[in-house]
């Protein structure tokens, strides 16, 4: 039989309310509080219950996570549940924090439930399955039933588990599926068009997600003291492409020295070229400075407008490259830049 473990807070464990919210994390073999209900509904055996005070998790997150992951280290389990957390904000946050950590550490499915008003939903719906739940514990049975049902489907290998059919909050994970009725795209388009024209309700197959915002960096106070790095998604690399960066759907990046160079010598000179397959390479191959403007930045260095040009430029290919890979590569680049005192980056894209 498959095994499950559940996380609940001090209140649902029957330890106490607000006065016990600093309760230290603990694991108890067997069923505590809502774990009993889950055990009835789930195809898996619920072997253990993890309990933690909401405030303890809130103010000692790192310690709580470390302890709980420690409890789980020698346990065998196939799936993890957290909550339901209803409208309780701190409990929702705790379910999310623990759920995400457990998923990352043990690669098991994690399922929770929260009311749509619970801030935990937006914070963690991308990381774990979260069902829209009731406002209060009056909905315990309904909410737990949804969690258990999805868990059973996962454990029994049923699928595909789409948000639309199962009802969990969308997670921004989109995959292609073959429609059961094989309705061709042309028919779907005409039907959608007629509804739109006639003012009827229609459903886009690609709901526009909210745009990610990035915190704005502070301006550079004194450029003449600053080290500026060049970076590009235009695929400029040494002609032998030493890091084997892919020419599309890149997962690799490289950094190459520009010490002593006033500009980037071209493909013909046997130095730099582009390996980017998404645009006509002729202009970049003939003069890589069109993509990585080293010559212009050197001129500003010469003039004293900037302190200096960083020793390396950073490069990858931005065609077919997913946002997730791009973000990872960007973070990896930034670590080098920070270590070597780069104050700002000019990033060129093609």
């Amino acid at each position: 039989m498959k095994k499950a473990i559940i996380y609940i807070n001090q209140f649902f464990a029957g330890i106490g309310g607000e006065e016990e919210a600093d309760h230290q994390p603990e694991i108890r073999e067997g069923l505590v509080g809502p774990a009993m209900l889950l055990n009835q509904l789930s195809d898996a055996e619920v072997t253990d219950t993890i309990i933690c005070g909401d405030n303890f998790m809130g103010s000692n997150e790192e310690e709580a996570v470390e302890k709980i992951l420690g409890f789980l280290e020698d346990k065998e389990f196939d799936i993890f549940f957290a909550g339901p957390a209803f409208q309780a904000g701190r409990y929702g946050n705790a379910c999310g924090v623990i759920g995400k950590a457990v998923k990352e550490a043990f690669d098991v499915p994690v399922i929770s439930s929260m009311n749509e008003e619970n801030p935990g939903v937006d914070m963690f719906k991308k990381d774990i399955y979260i069902f829209p739940g009731g406002k209060s514990a009056a909905k315990m049975k309904d909410d737990m039933a949804k969690m258990a049902e999805l868990g059973n489907k996962i454990l029994n290998g049923e699928g595909p588990l789409t948000a639309e059919e199962e009802g969990f909050f969308t997670r921004g994970i989109r995959h292609q599926v073959w429609l059961e009725d094989s309705k061709p795209a042309a028919d779907r388009a005409i039907e959608m068009l007629l509804k739109k024209v006639n003012g009827e309700e229609f459903k886009s197959e690609l709901p526009i997600p909210k745009i990610d915002r990035v915190p704005i960096a502070e301006p550079i106070k004194d450029l003449s003291e600053a080290t500026i790095a060049l970076a590009t998604s235009g695929g400029i690399v040494p002609v032998d492409n030493p890091d084997k960066i892919q020419s599309a759907s890149a997962t690799r990046w490289g950094r190459y020295s520009v010490e002593g160079l006033d500009n980037l010598p071209n493909r013909e000179a046997g130095e730099f070229k582009t390996i980017h397959a998404g645009y006509d390479p002729a202009a970049a191959d003939a003069n890589p400075d069109r993509v990585v403007p080293l010559d212009a930045l050197r001129a500003y260095e010469e003039e004293g407008r900037i302190g200096k040009v960083h020793e390396y430029f950073y490069t990858t290919v931005g065609t077919g490259t997913t946002e997730a890979e791009a973000a990872r590569m960007g973070q990896e680049m930034v670590e080098y830049m920070k270590d070597e005192g780069v104050d700002a980056v000019i990033l060129t894209s093609t």
Binding site: R174, H175, Q176, L193, E205, I208, P209, T322, A324
Partner: peptide, 30 residues
Amino acid sequence: ECTGRDGQSQPLVTLDERADAIVSCGNVST
């Protein structure tokens, strides 16, 4: 769409709320 092998990337590189009716035909990176 191009949502990546894990399905988690932004579906189109440019988005606009006026594009409120789209028929989507697959993920290039599956």
